[in-house]
Write a protein that binds this DNA or RNA. Structure first.
Lengths: 154, 154
DNA sequence: CTATGTGCAAACCGTTTGCACACAT
DNA sequence: ATGTGTGCAAACGGTTTGCACATAG
């Protein structure tokens, strides 16, 4: 929030609401989920998109792509840049596990050496069926909110 | 093609054309690129989507997600199932390098043991700036076709 | 007071679908 | 002959944008 103030951004009710909502959700969330989670007053979808663009730019938020065509965002509350993580996502319910270490740094430097590419980054997600969903043959076990799309695995 | 015939699918001009086009392109291609590459006669976008869905189901084609919101497909000419690969994609031009070994199998089994997830798969892509594009400060070096969207890196 | 942010509605764009016609078998 | 596939155009759904109004500074 101070980050905003100092960087020539205005602190509005919407922006505060959106950021609080995202913090409260405490998981990678879609713009739709975010508007629904805003408590005081309401907030337009367009505003969420615009805020997310801004926050991402400021490094307050990270965009996650799970390959189902929906944008997801999560708070980048860890150290600003040095740290990123990947996810283990249940194909049936919404469960998402954070994986906190990433072993791909040396992979990247090897690729750089081998192919001459620079500024290499990566995108890595794992998909599977979580323990709860293994028990319930058919459908999601964990959460109650409506499923949107099936996640296609790698 | 025989795969189609045997599996209760009809061998039509469109399907042949689409598959040939994809083979000729020899890289992960968007539906748009595929229609444009069909030589004999023309083919509707909808047909490409339908054919890709079918071919993917038959294991003839793989769907690639590079995170720019466009579907891409590539021929799955390698062995049907045991083999998959990842990509190293230039953020500026269309260059895509195939990475032929995947070191994540044991990572998956570790995740399975640790979190209890099953049927684990993954999605892994690397992004960077290819050697040619490093020389040309501003724009794509390699190919001539119009850029659609910038690829957001991991 | 004024520049920035917001809501609303329309535009966009890739993808999917309904339907009547075409064609492989 | 007939059931499957195709083109066309409309529908869809997430995201983006234009514009007039609201508001933080």
């Amino acid at each position: 929030m101070e980050r905003l103030r100092s960087q020539a951004g205005r602190v509005t009710r919407s922006r505060r609401g959106v950021l609080e909502a995202l913090a409260r959700l405490r998981r990678p969330s879609t713009p739709r989920q975010i508007v629904d989670a805003v408590t005081e007053g309401s907030c337009d979808l367009a505003t969420v998109y615009r805020s997310m663009a801004l926050f991402e730019h400021l490094g307050l938020v990270r965009r996650i792509d799970l390959g189902d065509g929906l944008a997801r965002f999560e708070i980048a509350d860890n150290d600003p840049d040095g740290h990123h993580h990947h996810h283990l996502v249940c194909r049936r319910c919404e469960r998402i596990v954070q994986l906190d270490d990433c072993i791909l740094a040396d992979m990247e430097s090897r690729l750089s050496r081998h192919y001459g590419f620079q500024e290499i980054t990566h995108r890595l997600e794992f998909f599977g069926v979580c323990p709860d969903c293994q028990r319930v043959r058919t459908r999601a076990a964990g959460s109650k909110e409506g499923r949107d799309r099936k996640l296609r695995g790698a």
